[in-house]
Amino acid sequence: MSDTIRDFQIDIPQSALDDLNTRIDMTRWPDPEPVGDWSQGIPLDYVQKVADYWRDSYDWRRCEDMLNQYPHHMTEIDGIDIHFMHILSPEATARPLIMTHGWPGSIIEFMDVIGPLTDPVSYGGKAKDAYHLVVPSLPGYGFSGKPTETGWGVERIAKAWDILMLRLGYDRYFAQGGDWGALVTSAIGVQNQGHCAGIHINLVVAGAPPEEVLQNPTPDEQSSLARFGAYQTQGGGYAEIQRTKPQTLGFGLADSPVGQMAWILEKFQGWSDGATTPDDSFDRDRLLDNIMLYWINNTGASSARLYRESFGSPDFEPVHLATGCSIFPNEIVVPSRRWAEQRFKNLRYWGEPSKGGHFAAMEVPKLFLHEVRSCFGGMDL
């Protein structure tokens, strides 16, 4: 294994963009849904509107320029090329922070918070809130390499992230994540190899509710249990497919850009805060930026495979490392503090923002920034 860090620039050939347009033009559409809502999935009319915009108005080169304003690198860890952005703060007192995305997100989720986190003074903030940011792409996602063997679950990724931070010269750092990024970050806390000083997560996976929650739930806990029950019966089918047969799913996602787009966009509607369509909560170009990282890198199957690798692993081992949790109201799982404390034994920060959902850094960046700063502001390296 080489510990070399190579510079990397995003430069997608025009032939790939031409191929995308051809495939959009050749889409064979399904019949329209027989209902007037999203209960059977993403509606035909909405997908066609977004596809038309993608084909005729969307500008990938704008996204490419936006991404390339930051330093990108590659390094091999445990046989896999890991892509990451490394953005240094101008502040001498800045502290290192690794931030991890999930599915169906990407590094695009963090575009609106990179500037305020690395250079808070330029955004009206305080120098004490500055961070040196490391923003990797998960294995099998974005520009990172795709595992060719089994075993790349969240625990292995957590170990890789610790190696990455040490390789960059950070022997003490903080870690943050949502979705799979939250599980990777929690695994960093479980492993507690002596380098991470504290974690912040905005998807709090705490295991089964404790007996006192089941026997005597508060109104908020009753709502949380009902919400998760509805997710399991009506919203979790995608996860079961990706957990059990990611390869089969991958054939459709690799061949059809509209299929890949629909598979992702549905979640940006269901997991945002009160959106009728994803456009109500997110900029359409930003949504397509995120989808493009899946399409141009052909990661439909490789990203789904993380579900196969990670479900059923010991995700609920106790975390004794200093932890902060932010519970955005439209998150998939919204445990109470006493529920979370059964797993996170050193809970230093607990935040309940007024709005936002699963993609908080992208949907409500100002609230997300407040949560991250409030959490790590109370922790020392």
Rank of each mutant, 00 (worst) to 15 (best):
F328C: 00
M362A: 05
A275K: 05
E371S: 14
A322S: 03
G189K: 07
I327P: 05
G153F: 03
D220K: 13
L287K: 06
L249T: 06
D280R: 02
R61D: 11
E109R: 04
I296P: 05
I10Y: 03
I87S: 05
M74C: 03
D45C: 09
H370C: 08
Q9Y: 02
N346G: 07
T148E: 12
A301N: 04
K245Y: 02
C63A: 15
T75K: 08
L253C: 13
D59H: 10
G198W: 05
A160E: 11
P136D: 12
A322Y: 03
D171Y: 04
P210H: 13
R172G: 00
E64Q: 15
E309V: 00
E109A: 09
E76L: 06
P90T: 08
D119R: 08
Q48N: 03
P147K: 01
V50Y: 15
G178F: 02
K245W: 02
M74E: 10
V205R: 10
W60C: 05
D283V: 07
F328R: 09
G145K: 06
M362R: 07
D18C: 03
Y231I: 03
A127P: 14
E33Q: 11
L288K: 08
L249F: 10
L381N: 09
Y141G: 01
H200Q: 13
T244S: 09
G115N: 00
D255A: 15
